[in-house]
């Protein structure tokens, strides 16, 4: 059995979710290749070749691949699958957009957001916003899988796989890239951050969200997250969203400020190592998962927290 892993990257650097997906792939097979599809992504291919356990890196370059157009990536990956028994893709927005296309073209099911590999055809995945875990057995000859990377340990470094340059495939078809706005941030990336500070609807406005959450995040060297309620209300951009319909995070420390703890939010952060919650409603469900809970208004508690962190040398 041979497995192809789709590398998550931004054309400049390889993301940690790739290492984690390699770990999931190695649970299926010892023959794991990594596909780097991008534009100017030579350094990414080199980094992928260094992941321990990787047999070979396939590297394809084109504008449409670099822009992350689903049709272009699917048309590259689908014919490659003639040589593989499984495709594993980190469940990023890009992975979620192209992987089902590959599955449909191969006439197989996609097994979405796998959190555990039981055996070569049996996998565990969350359903109902993480309120249930479904174990499914696939009868398809080829498996197309997206991986919830936070549930797997990152594969180590020290590999020296060969890099093979391949053709870019037929391209994006009838889809044209117009433009892209990526929010530039000095903060760590949400999905990979060791500490996450998230704000909820209690913030009341985008200005208040920025005034309260961002300085605390910067003091901790943390990424900023938000509940779906805060995103829906327009207090924070969508890519801050932590939860079943947003990002799933599992940092060392998760700080929830003014977040009630709706099921859909808990699904996105309950695997965090330590959860701290500040909420003025002592009955809020967030306290049922928090290791450290403070029943207080964030308006007074966050400044106190900032002072206490400063006193502790942070």
């Amino acid at each position: 059995m041979a497995v192809l892993v789709f590398a998550d990257h931004d054309n400049a650097s390889l993301k940690d979710s790739t290492h984690k997906t390699v770990t999931a792939a190695l649970a299926l097979s010892g023959d794991v290749d990594v596909l780097v599809a991008g534009k100017g992504a030579g350094d990414v291919a080199k980094a992928a070749a260094g992941i321990a356990g990787v047999r070979k890196v396939l590297h394809a370059e084109s504008d449409a691949l670099g822009q992350g157009l689903a049709e272009a990536i699917a048309s590259l990956v689908t014919p490659l699958m003639a040589g593989y028994d499984a495709l594993l893709t980190p469940a990023t927005s890009l992975g979620k957009s192209f992987s089902p296309r590959v599955a449909a073209k191969l006439d197989v099911a996609q097994i979405t957001e796998v959190v555990e590999v039981v055996d070569g055809s049996t996998f565990v995945r969350p359903i109902y916003a993480g309120n249930a875990l479904e174990t499914v057995k696939s009868s398809d000859a080829k498996k197309v899988i997206t991986v919830r990377a936070t549930n797997f340990k990152a594969a180590g470094e020290g590999g020296s796989a060969a890099i093979e340059t391949i053709e870019a495939g037929p391209g994006p078809g009838k889809t044209t890239f117009v433009d892209q706005q990526i929010v530039k941030s000095a903060r760590p990336e949400l999905a990979a951050a060791k500490i996450v500070v998230s704000g909820g609807r209690a913030m009341g406005s985008a200005e208040e969200f920025q005034r309260v959450i961002e300085p605390l995040a910067d003091k901790l060297g943390a990424a900023v997250g938000a509940s779906r309620a805060a995103v829906d209300a327009g207090y924070a951009p969508n890519d801050y969203q932590v939860g079943q319909t947003g990002k799933v995070v599992a940092p060392e420390l998760y700080v929830a400020i003014g977040i009630s703890g709706a099921i859909q939010h808990l699904a996105g952060m309950k695997d965090s190592k330590v959860i701290v919650a500040i909420n003025k409603d002592g009955d809020a469900p967030i306290f049922q998962v928090a290791d450290l809970g403070l029943v207080a208004d964030y308006k007074s508690a966050v400044p106190e927290l900032m002072d206490a962190l400063a006193a502790a040398g942070k």
């Binding site: 931004d10 157009l69 990023t92 044209t176 890239f177 892209q180 951009p237 890519d239």
Partner: peptide, 10 residues
Amino acid sequence: EIDGGLQTVD
């Protein structure tokens, strides 16, 4: 909506 921001396609 993409990771890290927004993309516009035609």
